[in-house]
Design a protein around this nucleic acid. Structure first.
Lengths: 144, 144
DNA sequence: TCCTATAATGAGAATCGTTATCATAAGAAC
DNA sequence: GTTCTTATGATAACGATTCTCATTATAGGA
């Protein structure tokens, strides 16, 4: 059992939610993927042992527990990834050509700039900021 | 006929696309809304004179022509708003409680900071940045 | 270990946003 | 006005997601 597993298990136990085979499979597949994955992609990764209906329910449960964060994209596709507290804070590069989503870590000094900006904007709008995301659209290294 | 109408008309004429009643209705509804609207919301705004099928086609046409930009949200909902060159550059505040999306203009000096950051991040990843979006999630002034 | 209460699963149907089809109507070019 | 092209409206189809319900697994107590 990995550290990740232990963290998730603890989080779920706190909420009286069981860490079952299907849910574990989702968490492990996401950990391996290293980037956002859709339900269909997770189904392909995990295999037919977890049917789609269960997969969707597992995803919803994990999302409610704050283990996963959804990422909504084109063509009615929602991709998921492990939440910030599990996988760290990062931003996204969206390729408009191939549709890929790349996670990108940014150095702490730059992240500090973003955070200051977010706080200032939110304060001006009397908005209580919980999280932020900087998404950059364009062409990835392969497609340009 | 408003300035907006003229701008859109010209853009469409350049692409041999007609600026029809349905398309005009979408543009006008979006201009009035002052924030992202889904197809269903536009349908409610415009009324039944433009049926959903036409509405979706109008949206797709306008999106291809670069008049609208899509904004993907929860529950497989895509909202649209007038493109940057028509409505100006701005960012979004997403309320996790009521689901509203608020457009927020940020001062030029702050925007410059964001742009510098985006350029630096993109350059590091060998990514050709075309546009960027800073999305802040949290509780809006009404919900907090 | 066995019981019991509760929560999770699997299979399938249902739902919802969106897209495609196709016959008809409107617009532009001549 | 005729003709050619493009847009429309009604409706069916589609794909991602959610729901239903009978069955199965799990946790906690006897």
């Amino acid at each position: 059992m990995t550290t990740l597993d232990r963290q998730v298990e603890h989080r779920l136990k706190d909420r009286d939610v069981r860490y079952t085979r299907a849910r574990r499979a989702v968490v492990e597949a996401l950990a391996q993927a290293g980037g956002p994955r859709s339900a269909a992609e997770l189904h392909a990764d995990i295999g037919p042992s977890v049917p789609l209906s269960s997969l969707y329910r597992s995803i919803a449960t994990l999302e409610e527990a704050g283990v996963l964060t959804p990422h909504h994209g084109a063509r009615s596709l929602t991709r998921y990834e492990l939440a910030e507290w599990l996988a760290g804070h990062h931003h996204h590069l969206l390729c408009t050509s191939c549709g890929s989503v790349e996670d990108i870590d940014i150095p702490a000094d730059r992240e500090a700039v973003v955070r200051r900006l977010v706080d200032a904007i939110a304060a001006d709008a009397q908005f209580a900021a919980a999280s932020h995301a900087l998404e950059i659209e364009g062409l990835c290294a392969r497609c340009r």
